[in-house]
Amino acid sequence: MTNVPLELDTHFRAAAAEEGLLDVAYDLVESPLGDLFVGVSDRGLCVISYEADPDAEVERLARNFGSRVLRSPRPVDPARRQLDEYFGGERRRFELDVDLRLARDFGRTVLEELGRVPFGEVTTYGALAAKAGKPKAARAVGTIMNRNPVPIVLPCHRVVGANGSLVGYAGGLERKETLLRLEGAILA
């Protein structure tokens, strides 16, 4: 069998995105925290995922965003560049559109508030709940952080317990600590 030449494959994947035919374009992005599975829709960044099983991730995206999910690096390049800069200590704020269409009501409000927590600072689950208008909903905020579709860019690693403990992180506590250290939020 004659296999598709790599160049032609690359060319098609780029053309598919250029013609606006994709529901989600994705690629793997290398980072100090391991490969990140990063997906972009026509509205913006829609997924960043640690240690993803790409097949399962593609299935999930197809269910949630539409069946035209294709690995296509170019649309992911802006996110890749900004993540590189962030990990290289050259960026403190992400300038990327984020697609939060799957988040509703309180969840969405919380994620929007989360986007305002600045680099190098931490807040608490309770404080974030209060900012989103429900001071007693700290536990719900924990769940929302756990399901944050775009960690790092929406900085759920900057949310800690009232006593200062790290509490939890969907990508594992070690990654949370690494991110906070990188930002100088943990000095020790």
């Binding site: 030449p5 995206l61 069946s67 035209r68």
Partner: peptide, 28 residues
């Protein structure tokens, strides 16, 4: 209907081989 990525991965090689048989060069 599978995600397009799996549809494409499953069919790209046989389709390319088919087009090569029909068209030779220019199948791209």
């Amino acid at each position: 209907i599978p995600p397009f990525e799996s549809f494409y991965e499953d069919h790209k090689d046989p389709v390319f081989a088919h087009l090569r048989r029909l068209l030779g060069q220019g199948a791209e």
